[in-house]
Design a protein around this nucleic acid. Structure first.
Length: 563
RNA sequence: GCAGUUGUGGUAUAGUCUGGUUAUUACUUGGGCCUUCCAAGCCUACAACCCGGGUUCGAAUCCCGGCAACUGCACCA
């Protein structure tokens, strides 16, 4: 692990570059150079392979600009904020809660802005810079705000996460999956947060890439048939208890984790396992990973359970790269409330249920003459009221009293009390959501950091599946004969879909060294012997071993290596 | 966001304090020669004073502002 050396080479060889560099840059943004973009794409493709083809989830793609309504419902408009104030004299802007805390020495985090304003006035808090008067406190929202359309009255925001784009499609998706739970939907894409002061390079960006899966399941059944296959896999888990007692991570099987109630349910454990598998396969080993359960105070209020996957770095310590949460029905319920669309699933019972119940309904022929024009609203109130409550009122007083715009007394003879038997074939439930959320940029960084080897030579030992360049082809000497054969091999491999580096100049050692640096796993050299025996030398980056194979066998050799 | 430090070719640097020649050196990179397996050698070329303003006859050098990076503090739903 060597952040400094790694970032140096990653910039030199075209992985990560600071954005807008020729205009002196803007922090919180990064460019992926040619190899970085390729590495990132490979990682995202691998992610799709695991979650879309592997798990049978489907990918959607929504807009990155969202109307205010969506983010109002999700809570981002109101809660994704910091309180700010501005000096009316010198124009300086401050975090209001910080200034206040400095003066009065108390935690004011949970207070409303109006309360903060009055604290400012009561304590005569002024601008720390010039002593000027402070303006009323407003919320600085971490979302990028924009206008939709020319009139400018439609407020939009750049999405702060990709997840909301899935939740708001729920009705369509539920139809697409024909109402069968569980089903999974993923979205990969950019998300935006206008951080006040990002300063950890690619670890904290204002524009970043997420890969999120939303798994909708029945709250009463959070099992998964796939669990059987992985129940004996070992996981290293830092549960709340482990953290509170500063203990060692638990080394337990997936099954034990569920049975002992350390992780809330089967599906959640299964997702932890999938995350681990993914990271291992792209070159991040278990030794630098930890699975950390959110502490009680850390967890969002609606979350039923939440685990972070963190990756060890030399520069930033443990960095959160994945969050896996059971979000309950929070998102769908909230969007149901704000949109007035019912975001739920009808679950049919195995057997229809016969339910006996007592209903109270108005006797309409007597109702009209008594209540006249008011009868529709009294009728409605009766229908909405709890039947048992009405019956009790009738038993006690012989009448039921309704408080609307005025008080209505409904005598017993205007009501019909009936025993009815209803057949109920199922129920509407709001699915729960388990959400694995991957920070792709942080994962790319982690892959770079942990693939990087320094020593005699510095190089990226990328896992074959994510290596940006898969094979180098070099004529040993740039002379007629080997040159043409090498060109021919390169062209054929490119047609096969491989990313090939073709290089004719420089000593062979230098070309190997350069290929090693960017993590090309295999190199093919063509020499004069090739003209006679139609064989080439194939060199392995990691072992530096060479073997001689026939040109005809190159394809199957690569297929075997990269399968 | 606050405080301190820093900003010279692609990279690493000299020069800045004490203003004055064509801005130093090495590596890298492009072209050529040579070269039959791990950064060799030779020739040659490209290439920089973070941006803006000020002081001055003259600014990489002094002053002011901005931007960025680093360190510490704060923030991180």
């Amino acid at each position: 692990m060597n952040h400094d050396k790694m970032t140096n080479i990653s910039a030199k060889r075209g992985f990560l570059w600071p954005s807008f560099e020729i205009y002196s840059g803007v922090s919180g943004f990064t460019d992926y150079g040619p190899l970085g973009a390729s590495l990132k794409n490979n990682i995202m493709q691998k992610w799709r392979k695991q979650y879309v083809s592997g798990e049978g989830f489907y990918e959607i793609e929504g807009p990155t600009v969202m109307p205010k309504e969506v983010l109002k419902a999700s809570g981002h408009v109101d809660n994704f904020t910091d309180p700010m104030t501005k000096c009316e004299e010198c124009g300086e802007v401050f975090r209001a809660d910080h200034i206040i805390e400095e003066v009065i020495g108390e935690d004011v985090e949970s207070l409303e802005n109006e309360e903060l304003d009055s604290i400012v006035i009561e304590n005569n808090i002024v601008c720390p810079e010039c002593g000027g008067k402070l303006a009323n406190i407003w919320n600085y929202n971490l979302m990028f705000k924009t206008m939709i359309g020319a009139k400018g009255d439609k407020v939009g925001y750049m999405r702060p996460e990709t997840a909301q784009g899935i939740f708001i499609l729920f009705k369509r998706l539920e139809r697409f999956f024909r109402g069968k739970l569980p089903f999974g939907v993923v979205q990969l894409g950019k998300a935006y947060r206008n951080e006040i002061s990002p300063r950890q390079g690619v670890i904290r960006l204002r524009e970043f890439t997420q890969a999120e899966a939303e798994i909708f399941l029945n709250p009463k059944d959070k099992t998964t048939p796939k669990f059987k296959q992985i129940e004996n896999e070992i996981l290293y888990l830092s549960s709340q208890e482990v953290q509170e007692t500063n203990g060692e991570p638990l080394k337990i099987t997936a099954k034990e984790a569920v049975d002992k109630g350390i992780v809330a349910n089967e599906m959640l454990v299964y997702q932890l396992y999938l995350a681990k598998k993914f990271l291992n396969e792209i070159g991040i080993p278990d030794e630098v990973l930890r699975f950390r359960q959110h502490l009680a105070g850390e967890m969002a209020h609606y979350a039923l359970d939440c685990w972070d996957v963190e990756c060890l770095t030399d520069k930033y310590g443990w960095v959160e790269i994945i969050g896996i949460a059971d979000r309950g029905d929070y998102d769908l319920t909230s969007h149901t409330e704000f949109s007035n669309d019912e975001l739920n699933v009808f679950i049919e019972y195995d057997q229809p249920k016969l339910v006996k119940k007592t209903v109270v309904k108005p006797n309409l022929s007597k109702f009209g003459p008594v209540f006249k024009g008011d009868s529709p609203k009294v009728k409605q109130a009766i229908e909405q009221a709890d039947a048992d409550e009405i019956i009790k009122a009738l038993e006690d007083n012989g009448k039921y009293v309704i408080e609307l715009d005025k008080t209505y007394e409904v005598p017993e003879e205007l009501l019909i009390v009936e025993e009815v038997e209803e057949e109920i074939s199922g129920e509407k439930i709001v699915p729960h959501v388990i959400e694995p959320s991957f920070g792709i940029d942080r994962i790319v960084y982690s892959v770079l950091l942990h693939s990087f080897k320094d020593g005699q030579k510095d190089y990226f030992k990328f896992a074959g599946e994510v290596a940006p360049v898969q094979v180098g082809v070099y004529p040993l000497v740039n002379k007629e004969g080997p040159r043409e054969i090498a060109e021919d091999i390169t062209n054929k491999l490119r047609l096969e879909g491989y990313t090939v580096e073709h290089e004719v100049t420089g000593t062979i050692g230098k070309r190997y060294a350069r290929a090693d640096e960017i993590g090309v796993p295999l190199a093919i050299t063509v020499d004069f012997d090739t003209l006679d025996d139609e064989k080439v030398t194939i060199r392995n980056r990691d072992s530096e071993k060479q073997e001689r194979i026939a040109i005809d066998e190159i394809n199957s050799y690569l297929e075997e290596y990269y399968k």
